[in-house]
Every structure is written in C-alpha cells, then in structure tokens.
Amino acid sequence: MNAPIRVLLADDDRLVRAAIETILRTAGDVELVAQAGDGRQAIDLTLLHRPDVVLLDIRMPVLDGLAALREIRRTAPAVHAVMLTTFGEDDYVAQALTAGAAGFLLKDSAADELPHAIRAAAAGDAFLSPRVTRQVLNRLPAAPAVPREDLARVESLSGREREVLILLAQGLSNAEISAQLFVTEGTVKTHLYRVFTKIGCDNRVQAAMLAQRAGLLD
C-alpha cells in the first residue's frame, strides 16, 4: 500500500478547517499532518513537517496566502501548493498560478474535488476548479504569442481532440465533457492523454492556457 499523501492546511476560519478535515478523513489516501491559522504559521509548519501538499487560503492574517506561497516555493520547492478561494477572487488566483501554485479550489467546491486536487498536486499535475477556469484564464496576465511550433501541435489535433480541449478550457470536468460528447469518462481521459501529448502540455492548466492563447475560445 502506498504511503498517504501528507497535507498541511492553512486557513484562518476554524469552521472551514473543520469541514476540510472531515473530507480528508474520508479520502483514504490523505493524511492531515498540521493546521495553520495564518500565513506565517503555514510557512513555519511547512518547513517543520515538509508535507507533500499544502492547502493555502488566499486571504489570511499576518501574512496572506500569496506571500506564504512565494516563501514556500522559495524555501520548500518540493512542496506543492493548492490555493483555497471564494468566488470572485480571480485576480488573486491568477497571481497564485503565476507564483507557482499547483491549482486552486473554491471553498464550496464539491467534496470529491478536494481529494482529487490533492492527488493531482502530489503527482506533479495541476488542478483548476472547473467552475471558474474560464474566469481565471480571462484574467491571467497577457501572454506572448503562441510559438509557431505550438500552433502546429494544436492544428495536429483531430476534430474530437480539439472539441475535448475546448471543453476543458471552458472549465468542464471530465464528467461534464463525457456528458456533452456522449462518451464514457474513460474515453475522455484517453482523448486528454492524446491531447496533452500532442500539444506538449503536462496538465489541464497548461492546456487551457494554450487553448486560450491559440484562439480556440474566441
């Protein structure tokens, strides 16, 4: 049996921490090693426990989640960070992704999204809450033009693979893409694997950003 994914949770709201702790206890493969109530504690406890993943609230006292993220990425680069946010904080999320966050979750996301995000981060992947992917992409800092070779990779996609990429970039989950295209989730995963391979992206965040820059969402 694989060792559990070690997680540190940082949020100044005790009720939020209690709710997340309850979800993590039922995940089966996740161990909550410590909890912090502010950004400074989050940094100190990360350096002490060296968790696999740290869940960081964006808005915290003493030191906010963005500042804590930057310090954690500097002092403990092997630790992956997933940001916790509320709807409407897209500017903060864009800054967090730019600073190296492995993704973000809305605090009121479906309970099964939290373990999924943690597993993705621990595996070196990235996760964006599907409900707000599009809003975040629209507020990311302007990116340079897509290199010609990247455009060639996008153009190499089959019609169905391009459909899957567009739906992913619009913020749909695998289940929602499955329902939209009338295929199984297994088929969606196969398409995504081929898409990522062809366009040279490692995860959903990179793929969604490339799709936007390539004009697929216009």
Score class of each variant (00 low, 15 high):
101 A>C: 12
96 A>T: 04
95 Q>W: 00
108 D>C: 09
100 G>S: 06
106 L>A: 08
103 G>E: 03
99 A>R: 03
126 A>S: 15
112 D>V: 13
99 A>L: 09
90 D>N: 11
104 F>A: 11
123 A>C: 12
104 F>S: 07
94 A>K: 08
105 L>V: 02
118 I>S: 10
97 L>E: 00
115 P>R: 13
98 T>S: 01
116 H>R: 12
106 L>M: 06
122 A>G: 10
117 A>V: 07
90 D>Q: 08
110 A>V: 14
92 Y>A: 11
115 P>D: 03
126 A>F: 02
119 R>M: 03
90 D>V: 15
126 A>L: 05
91 D>A: 15
92 Y>T: 01
92 Y>K: 05
107 K>P: 14
92 Y>E: 04
91 D>I: 07
123 A>E: 14
118 I>W: 12
120 A>L: 14
113 E>V: 04
125 D>T: 08
124 G>E: 11
121 A>C: 13
111 A>D: 02
95 Q>G: 01
115 P>F: 01
96 A>F: 03
113 E>A: 09
109 S>V: 15
120 A>K: 15
97 L>R: 02
123 A>H: 13
109 S>N: 04
117 A>H: 12
113 E>F: 07
119 R>E: 09
125 D>P: 08
91 D>C: 02
122 A>F: 14
99 A>T: 00
96 A>G: 11
107 K>W: 06
104 F>D: 01
117 A>E: 08
115 P>V: 07
114 L>M: 11
126 A>K: 12
110 A>I: 08
97 L>M: 06
125 D>W: 01
125 D>F: 09
91 D>S: 11
113 E>K: 13
110 A>H: 12
112 D>C: 04
91 D>W: 03
99 A>Q: 03
124 G>D: 10
117 A>S: 10
118 I>N: 09
118 I>P: 04
115 P>Y: 03
107 K>F: 00
113 E>H: 12
111 A>K: 06
94 A>C: 13
95 Q>S: 01
112 D>N: 07
92 Y>R: 09
108 D>T: 12
101 A>V: 02
102 A>E: 01
115 P>Q: 10
96 A>Q: 04
94 A>Y: 03
111 A>S: 06
92 Y>P: 02
125 D>R: 05
104 F>R: 10
124 G>I: 14
100 G>R: 02
107 K>A: 08
111 A>E: 06
112 D>H: 11
97 L>A: 00
98 T>N: 01
107 K>H: 02
115 P>G: 02
106 L>G: 03
105 L>C: 03
105 L>I: 07
92 Y>G: 15
98 T>C: 00
101 A>E: 00
90 D>K: 10
90 D>M: 14
102 A>P: 05
95 Q>C: 02
114 L>S: 00
119 R>D: 07
125 D>E: 04
113 E>D: 09
92 Y>L: 14
92 Y>S: 12
105 L>P: 01
121 A>E: 06
90 D>I: 15
91 D>G: 14
116 H>W: 00
